[in-house]
Design a protein around this nucleic acid. Structure first.
Lengths: 187, 187
DNA sequence: ACCTGAACACCGTTCAAGT
DNA sequence: ACCTGAACACCGTTCAAGT
């Protein structure tokens, strides 16, 4: 957890760094955006960036964190609500949209989910717990195979996101998700 | 196509470079193995490596080429032979085993398949053609959905390979392939 | 308490100089 | 005809020096 700074210039720099990272992630992806580029874009020295965020993962987590938290919130909503018949697919589709938001995010996400620690890993665990509850509900309703686990569903979704992140055609994602959900149905 | 050199020392260097690349790919993956490391390992200067292989893709293609060609050959065998009922799965499973041979290969493969040119891209096209014939045969026998295309099958297989390349558990691959083939079945 | 920017080891890549 | 290795711009990362 990166402790927020107290001084106002530090707070200002922190905000500028996140903004610069977001802009570069948008333009070239999380992988191609170098730490030095981000610092330059934010108008600060590299050292400033590294003290604010000890890791590129920490910076990535700061940029996509709110969106990841939103996934847990959406899961809670779907579980509380009247229950759309396709609620699991709706959630996984949102997850894939989230991962394909920035090129290179699928790799960061897979690594973080595997290691389980770090600022991204922690949020991945939360996402996985949300997925577990959704899968359980879907299983109760007979909408998915009885032996489907949440981790493997997420792994497949992440893989689909990875396969789609470079592809131009936008309907590719829908199509691969179709095939994925066909494979996950009962019997 | 990298024209093979004529002089015996050049031939020798070329062989040593391929051997060094293979060894480093084995140890750290195609991504982490740097060109300078490979040259150092082979006992030659970086310039020598770059003239033998103008690209890292060219070097990768040289290391995995024979194995990729084997996939086309296997496809021909499966089409000629008596026809095992699971011949498509057998082939895709071999493809996935091939891609997971070296860490980082899934990314190289996906890029090459998308661009379609370069030494790897050319071989990818051959693999895709082989897959097209296999999918057609499987469709005739009613073993796969009528709307399944070879490119998307390969995309999914590559994605599964990517998802499995860092995972320790070896049965993960089998499991994800199971789900994949469940999704690809008719109806 | 925080910022700066020079510095280090490394990367991919090139190319003049050698044999 | 081929090899060598110094060189360039860059990367991630650190840290002494400043305010």
């Amino acid at each position: 957890m990166t402790g927020h700074p107290r001084r106002s210039d530090a707070l200002h720099n922190r905000a500028r760094l996140i903004e610069a990272a977001r802009a570069l992630f948008d333009e070239v992806g999380t992988d191609a955006a170098s730490m030095n580029d981000i610092a330059r874009r934010a108008g600060v020295g590299p050292g400033t960036l590294w003290r604010h965020f000890p890791d590129k993962e920490a910076l990535t987590a700061e940029v996509v964190g709110r969106s990841l938290d939103g996934l847990a919130a959406l899961a809670a909503e779907l579980l509380d609500g009247p229950g759309s018949p396709d609620f699991l697919r709706e959630w996984v589709s949102t997850l894939v949209r989230h991962i394909t938001r920035y090129r290179g995010l699928a790799v960061s996400y897979a690594q973080a989910a595997r290691s389980g620690d770090g600022p991204l890993g922690a949020r991945c665990r939360a996402v996985e717990e949300a997925a577990a509850r959704l899968v359980e509900r879907a299983r109760e309703r007979g909408q998915v195979r009885a032996d489907l686990t949440a981790p493997e569903l997420i792994r497949l979704a992440t893989a689909v996101a990875w396969a789609c992140e470079t592809t131009a055609a936008p309907d590719t994602t829908t199509r691969l998700l179709d095939l994925l959900f066909e494979g996950v149905r009962p019997r």
